[in-house]
Amino acid sequence: MYSATTVGSNKDLEQILQLQRQNLKQFISQEEKNAQGFLTMQFNLPMLQQLHAIAPSIIIKQADEVVAYAMTVTLEGRQAYPDLEPMFVNFEKLQWQGKPLYDHRFYVMGQICVSKAHRAKGLVDMLYQHHKVVYSPHYDFIITEISTSNYRSLQAHKRVGFEIIHTYEDFMDNWNVVVWDWR
């Protein structure tokens, strides 16, 4: 049985990091990247502690094991992970629905991951639905970037309701900027 909740302990954060390491693009084959998707950014425990002190991420547990997570990164939390700064700077240049992005109330999906053994069981939808329950009273939408080569992630986000609002290239990759509107 799966249960969606927010991060509640350092043990949860350590399990997120373990799950993250198993899915970082530098540690998996090209075939797995193409078929299953991948993670680009690597976090550490102090970063996660900072982020979760501001706004806890959503996790799915089976018994005591974290089997999926969707990381919450608020604008206040952007200093916790300096490698995300180019993304936030790019967002400062964007408009959405006729207004500058920063005129809206939003936060960033910092990363989403489902354990290999628990994929294709609806957990991405479960993660995002719990994000909506917890955070929609305070925010208009979630925004994130997805590598244009991460087909599985892009399809999962579209299924949930995200739409592409911008595509660009930086020193790391080509990115789709996607938004899930809650209004």
Rank of each mutant, 00 (worst) to 15 (best):
M1C: 08
Y2E: 00
S3A: 08
A4R: 06
T6M: 10
V7M: 09
G8M: 08
S9K: 04
S9L: 04
N10S: 15
K11P: 08
D12K: 09
D12A: 11
L13R: 11
E14V: 11
Q15D: 09
Q15G: 06
Q15M: 11
Q15Y: 06
Q15T: 09
I16T: 04
L17H: 09
Q18N: 14
L19W: 06
R21K: 13
Q22P: 01
Q22C: 04
L24K: 02
L24V: 07
K25I: 10
I28C: 04
I28L: 03
E32Q: 13
E32F: 07
K33G: 00
N34L: 12
A35L: 10
L39T: 01
M41A: 13
M41I: 13
Q42I: 04
F43P: 10
N44L: 02
P46C: 09
L48T: 02
L51H: 05
I54K: 11
I54P: 02
A55C: 05
P56M: 01
S57D: 01
I58V: 14
I59K: 02
I60L: 00
K61I: 01
K61L: 07
D64W: 01
E65Q: 15
A68E: 00
A68N: 04
A68M: 01
Y69G: 04
V73T: 14
V73I: 15
E76C: 06
G77V: 09
Q79W: 12
A80V: 02
Y81S: 12
D83W: 06
E85F: 12
N90P: 00
N90G: 07
L94S: 05
L94R: 09
Q95V: 10
W96S: 05
Q97C: 07
Q97D: 04
K99A: 06
K99R: 14
Y102L: 05
Y102P: 09
Y102E: 03
Y102D: 05
D103T: 12
H104I: 06
H104Q: 09
H104D: 03
R105K: 15
Y107P: 06
V108I: 12
V108E: 13
M109V: 13
M109A: 13
I112G: 15
I112P: 09
V114N: 01
H118V: 00
R119P: 00
K121G: 00
K121R: 13
G122N: 02
L123M: 00
H130W: 08
K132Y: 13
V134Y: 00
S136C: 10
P137G: 04
Y139M: 02
D140V: 01
E145Q: 15
S147E: 08
T148N: 01
S149C: 07
S149Y: 02
N150Q: 06
N150Y: 05
R152I: 08
A156Y: 00
H157N: 14
K158S: 07
V160D: 03
F162N: 12
F162A: 12
I164C: 09
I165P: 05
I165V: 10
H166N: 10
T167A: 11
Y168H: 11
E169Y: 07
E169K: 14
E169C: 13
D170W: 01
M172S: 11
N174D: 14
W175I: 05
W175G: 07
W175S: 02
W175F: 01
V178D: 03
R183I: 06
R183T: 11
R183C: 04
